[in-house]
Design a protein around this nucleic acid. Structure first.
Lengths: 108, 108
DNA sequence: AATATTATTCGTACTTTTGCGAACAACAAA
DNA sequence: TTTGTTGTTCGCAAAAGTACGAATAATATT
């Protein structure tokens, strides 16, 4: 009988994907990627949601490892977590390549 | 004042990402990618969850446009939706490249 | 007509997510 | 010490997600 558990990689890809599964978080990541200043306030200004909600989204991105924060009293500076970003990039690249390899669809 | 709405692309990436945000759905996509036969039963056999739940996950993937289904009475054949798959691949590729362009992190 | 096969939908339960305003914490400035 | 600035956390509500077994539908087979 085959092992039905999910692999570590599958879990990891899903975790990253889940973190990216909200437009606000996509916007945050894109914003962080093209800014040299990335304070909470600047991020909040870009988004159509309350600061409490922004804070929550940032927490989720941080928990997923995609970003990191640093206190610079009285502000908080956020940025992409480069290492995990690279990892995500690799995993997604692998994933899409793997699934793109086969040329014909089995349907139609 | 800047437009705070999310762009179509951001919404689309988030939509794909959200659909990929569960290990079962990642497993399904990977399975479909490497099989020439892809009946519901085969998919179900690969996963540690009840068939009703598998059906739900398949529906979500279908709603997101990543897969498609076809009835072959009495079975149902599922497969990757090649067009949208390509689109997802492009969008994620763009997204990661864009965010990887800047070399130094703004945090330390 | 009764039975078997296959997968979806229904009904239910529980958890998680999303969102907000208000309260709070930490520190700087007046 | 009071006031102001900046973000986080709390408490709450509504919605969405996850999961299961049972019921159902659709079609073959006996």
């Amino acid at each position: 009988m085959a092992n039905k558990d999910y692999s570590i990689k599958q879990e990891q890809v899903a975790r990253f994907a889940k973190a990216m599964g909200h437009p606000a978080r996509i916007a945050i990541l894109q914003f962080l990627a093209k800014q040299s200043t990335c304070y909470f306030g600047d991020i909040h200004e870009e988004l159509p949601i309350a600061k409490a909600t922004v804070s929550q989204h940032l927490k989720e991105l941080k928990d997923a490892g995609l970003i990191q924060g640093e206190v610079e009293t009285p502000k908080v500076k956020y940025c992409i977590n480069r290492d995990n970003w690279r990892l995500a990039q690799e995993l997604f690249g692998e994933f899409f390549c793997e699934c793109a390899r086969k040329k014909e669809s089995c349907c139609g």
